Computed example of a mutant assay.
Amino acid sequence: MLVSQWAHDTFGQRVPLIRQGIAEALSVALENARDAQKVAQTDHLHPFGFTLMSRKFEALAEAFEDMSDVRIVKPAGSPHELVLLDGKLLFPFRYAKDRSISVMSARIGDGRPSALVQALFQRFGPEPRMRQLALHDVAPQAALVAEALAGLPDGTELVLIAYACNAHAGLLDAWWGEAELLDRTGSLRWHHCEEIPLARESAARAAEQAPAAAFDQGVMPTPALNARSRAERLAAPAGEAIPIRPEAASGE
């Protein structure tokens, strides 16, 4: 998959590595959530949802914790740790449970976005293309959370990771980019959004691109020696040459 100008400007030469890390982290979080659902042995999807909510943040942190320019931050009042990678704050969220909703119509959060989400957009989101709601217009707690985020470096940028999945079909797709928060319902206006290739797609693409085995790389067939018995050879017609026995040719 080609690297866009936005991705290159945001993450430089490490774009393929970071995309792969994100895809693998989402896959790990999803499989953990599906395992929790299976162990719970209930038709209610609460185990899946609660596990996914936590593991998506943890799996991202685990995927990038060994990078030298990674910082794991835990905003005050938030139970989740966020990955700050080279000044880019990664924030994953599930925008849909199936393919009926386009990522361009994605909303962040179930219902009203949390105070943390609102504060993240206010401080680190892209410059809005229309008037953005003031913190006191959205949630009173958002102003307090914004103060708690003051310790993050100047110039920090919010990178959204939007994905669709469910307990039965698994991870359907994933996207990343930057957007502004429009209203109290979590509506977004994407400034840039592009798809993240998933791990299974990368494997399938590699299989498709693998060169076919050349003719001369196959196993050569081994011809059968002395296919006829000794009696058949001795009884051969006079006009037919009798093959030389290998034993005689070897001098034994």
Score class of each variant (00 low, 15 high):
82 L>C: 05
30 L>F: 01
102 S>E: 10
131 R>H: 11
96 A>F: 07
47 P>E: 09
89 L>K: 07
121 F>G: 09
45 L>Y: 06
43 D>W: 14
76 A>M: 10
113 P>I: 02
63 A>Y: 03
38 K>M: 05
126 P>Y: 08
75 P>M: 03
123 R>L: 15
98 D>Q: 05
136 H>P: 08
104 M>P: 00
101 I>Q: 15
38 K>R: 13
40 A>K: 04
79 P>R: 03
131 R>F: 07
84 L>A: 04
117 V>D: 08
128 P>G: 09
38 K>P: 00
103 V>R: 13
87 G>N: 01
66 D>F: 02
42 T>E: 11
124 F>D: 12
106 A>P: 00
50 F>M: 10
57 F>Q: 02
34 R>K: 14
34 R>E: 01
61 A>K: 10
36 A>M: 11
63 A>C: 02
39 V>K: 13
116 L>I: 07
43 D>V: 07
75 P>E: 04
135 L>I: 11
42 T>L: 09
109 G>I: 03
79 P>Q: 04
136 H>C: 14
116 L>M: 08
79 P>F: 02
45 L>R: 10
85 L>Y: 09
44 H>R: 13
74 K>M: 10
106 A>D: 05
35 D>Y: 12
40 A>R: 07
74 K>G: 12
55 R>A: 07
33 A>S: 03
44 H>A: 12
128 P>V: 04
33 A>G: 00
104 M>A: 07
115 A>V: 10
137 D>V: 04
85 L>I: 00
30 L>S: 02
39 V>T: 09
35 D>G: 01
43 D>C: 03
54 S>C: 04
60 L>D: 03
90 L>P: 05
51 T>D: 01
130 M>K: 15
90 L>A: 03
37 Q>R: 08
86 D>F: 01
91 F>N: 14
98 D>T: 00
94 R>N: 06
35 D>N: 09
71 R>I: 10
62 E>S: 11
122 Q>K: 14
98 D>Y: 06
133 L>C: 14
136 H>F: 13
88 K>F: 02
122 Q>I: 09
80 H>A: 14
115 A>D: 14
54 S>K: 13
35 D>K: 10
79 P>M: 04
103 V>S: 10
64 F>W: 08
68 S>K: 09
127 E>P: 13
54 S>P: 00
114 S>R: 11
104 M>W: 13
52 L>G: 00
80 H>Y: 13
67 M>I: 06
41 Q>D: 12
81 E>P: 13
107 R>I: 09
55 R>C: 00
42 T>K: 13
62 E>R: 12
67 M>D: 14
30 L>K: 06
60 L>K: 05
91 F>G: 08
119 A>F: 14
88 K>C: 12
